[in-house]
Amino acid sequence: MDQLFLIPFLAGLPLALLLPVLGNLARLRDEWLAALGIAHLAGAAGLAGLAWHLPAVLGAPLGALAGAGFKHALGGRGNSVFGVMILAGWAATLLIAANSSLGESLAHALVDGQLYFASTIDLAAAWLVGALGLATLSWLTPRLIRARLFPGHELANRLPAWRWHFGFDLLAALAIAVATATLGLMAAFALVFLPAWIAFRLAPDWRRAGRLAAGLGGAGYLLAFAIALALDQPFGPVLVTVLLAMLAASLAVRR
């Protein structure tokens, strides 16, 4: 691979493996729409950061973390909260673009995906968030599954449940923010949403659902990267198309 594309490739890879696993947990919690809300807020904050000469990968997490805090403060659950986050992020993105020297081109770059412009900062942020996921998911996952299937357990045993609920929100927000700044808004959302959907249809248990989702995310990423390079296409839409094709194939297989 050309050295020019190595850093972007390595920056996107850990995100393509981590986001689908987070997507499984978000889907189990009926919170997959939150990923789109967080991605919109991250996009807006990333753009605001660029206006202040900050790399998008540093600005985006601020918006995502604000979204996670907003969700947690409102009790977290429900599509209404996620709808507000999507609308607020969308409005802020376009208003910042219209009222700064960045213009709409940068806003489009953030929304469409700008993987090929990923820098070493993006690379470091992606691997850092990947390591954070690796370190915390084995602790978070059984607690989040238990909370979903036995919601009264935490209250009955006076457990400090906010640690794993808020911890997951923060991890997901950080990962989606870094992915939004690196891969683009819709590509980040697709990695959370589509592999988890397929895994939930096909996997016989949670362990294999995680492997399947991560495998689909990784394979989709590799394929999309190769297609986008070979055909000189924007990466974000190609990745979304590849993941949609995987979903269509899984629906056909299941029938």
């Binding site: 979903r148 299937l149 036995f150 919601p151 009264g152 294999r208």
Partner: peptide, 24 residues
């Protein structure tokens, strides 16, 4: 404490095996 509610919570879709439910 462990408690079994009148209607145990069950998501419409959940790729969690019985063994994994016991494990958590």
């Amino acid at each position: 404490l462990r408690q079994l509610p009148q209607r145990p919570e069950r998501p419409a879709e959940a790729p969690v095996s019985g063994r994994e439910l016991l494990a958590v």
